[in-house]
Simulated assay, not measured.
Amino acid sequence: MLTRKQMELLEFIKSRMDRDGVPPSFDEMKDALDLRSKSGIHRLITALEERGFIRRLAHRARALEIVKLPEAMERPAFTPRVIEGDRPEPPKGAMALDTVHALDLPLLGRIAAGMPIEAISDVAQSVTVPGSMLSGRGQHYALEVKGDSMIEAGINNGDIVVIREQQTADNGDIVVALVADHEATLKRFRRRGGMIALEPANAAYETQVYPEALVKVQGRLVGLIRSY
């Protein structure tokens, strides 16, 4: 698995090669990653080369070649559609705004974006979301995020996430996962043979790996609402 800085550098190199047809200079890489010296870039380049993601070509200026990409870069990353504003409680039994363009979803409580917490099942209140945020058919619900383990995916403590109920997930999906039937967490889903990895989006947290039988997918992230 790549570190955050290694991933940032690889993404920057790819974006510049896609745009210009040549890799960026070491000075451009240093500035893009906000590093103080080019020695840090040299270390990152060496690490990427050792892991087989890039190749340095001899006797050529800016001689870098991308050999492969990590799976997270091969599929489109989730980018939250953030709806900014407060969360006034709608009148009891009423649909907020336009019944066609806005819907009330049950707010089931809090979900951990950190270590798993006790599973949530009680409806605390409701939250109004635009109908365009909902992903296809099926039931949806909302959860308040507790913790900061998904901040690099744009999901902050206190955000409201909109979840589509489903029991399966593709690698790279951000899901609500129920661990051992009593702990729920919001993480990126990866299947590794007979194991399931629940990955944070914060370098301060470690990936949690469980036997497949202990992890149940309860939904996939489809939207996000932020309050100020």
Rank of each mutant, 00 (worst) to 15 (best):
I155H: 02
Q139F: 07
G147E: 01
G154M: 09
I155M: 05
H140Q: 11
N156E: 14
G138T: 11
A124I: 12
A124L: 13
M150W: 01
S149F: 00
E144R: 15
E152V: 03
Y141Q: 09
S149R: 00
A142N: 09
M150Q: 05
V145W: 03
Y141E: 07
E152L: 12
V129E: 04
G147S: 04
V127C: 06
G136T: 11
T128P: 02
A153N: 06
L143M: 15
H140K: 09
D148C: 03
N156Q: 12
T128G: 02
K146A: 06
S135D: 15
N156P: 00
T128D: 03
V129K: 01
G136E: 10
S132P: 00
N156C: 08
A142P: 09
V127L: 06
H140D: 06
A153G: 03
I151G: 01
G136V: 11
G138V: 12
I151C: 09
L134V: 05
K146Q: 13
P130L: 10
Q139M: 11
A142D: 10
M133K: 07
I155Q: 01
G131E: 12
Y141L: 12
Q125N: 11
I151F: 02
S126C: 06
A124Y: 10
S132K: 08
Q125M: 08
E152I: 01
G147K: 00
G138F: 11
A153F: 07
S126P: 00
G136H: 08
E144L: 09
I155V: 07
M150Y: 02
V129C: 03
G136A: 08
N156D: 13
G131R: 14
G154A: 05
Q125F: 05
R137H: 10
I155C: 05
Q139I: 02
V145H: 04
N156Y: 14
I155L: 12
E144T: 14
Q125K: 12
S149K: 00
G136R: 09
E144K: 15
A124M: 13
G138W: 10
M133C: 05
T128W: 03
H140L: 09
G131T: 15
Y141R: 10
V127M: 05
P130R: 09
V127K: 03
S126G: 05
E152Q: 14
G131F: 08
V127S: 04
H140Y: 08
S132F: 14
I151T: 15
S135V: 03
R137N: 11
K146I: 00
L143I: 07
N156H: 14
G154R: 05
S135L: 13
D148S: 10
L134Q: 05
P130F: 12
G154I: 03
A153C: 08
A153P: 00
S135F: 13
S126F: 13
A142Q: 08
T128C: 14
G154D: 06
S135I: 01
K146E: 07
K146Y: 02
G131N: 14
V127W: 03
V127Q: 04
H140I: 04
